[in-house]
Amino acid sequence: MKRMIAWLAGTIGIGAVLYVIFYHPLPVLFFPELPHLSFFGRCFYILLLAASLCLIRVALGPTAADRIVAIDILGILIVGFCAIVNIPTGRGWYMDIAIAWALQSFIATLALAKYLEGKNLDD
């Protein structure tokens, strides 16, 4: 019963945020004279929603492992974000940032996993 109520609340919340993103993009609510967003602006808002769900897990997570998992996932989301940014702006170097971010996020996750396991880094 409690789980059903939580599911309903989550579905209604995410549905409301998606409705706002698709039909009334956020700046338009406060400044009605702005033009509506393009497709890529909506993509940014959806990725921000996903990243904020990751941050909820970072804040709530009962153990250290949950937080590390959420940070790992956040790194992969940022790679996708950089890939989308370079289409409307036309700046190719965002893809370089994506590759470098993927590299350093992978190495950081491995180091954190070693730390969690309680071993030295050269083991």
């Binding site: 492992a65 890939a83 190719g92 893809m95 994506a98 993927a102 996750t109 996993a113």
Partner: peptide, 26 residues
């Protein structure tokens, strides 16, 4: 660069998941 990034992400994301699950269990 986008194609290379696909290969890179598909190779490294499972490895980091593997390392994290093993570390959590240990």
């Amino acid at each position: 660069k986008a194609l290379l990034c696909i290969i890179f992400v598909a190779l490294t994301a499972p490895v980091s998941a593997h390392a994290l699950s093993r570390a959590a269990h240990k």
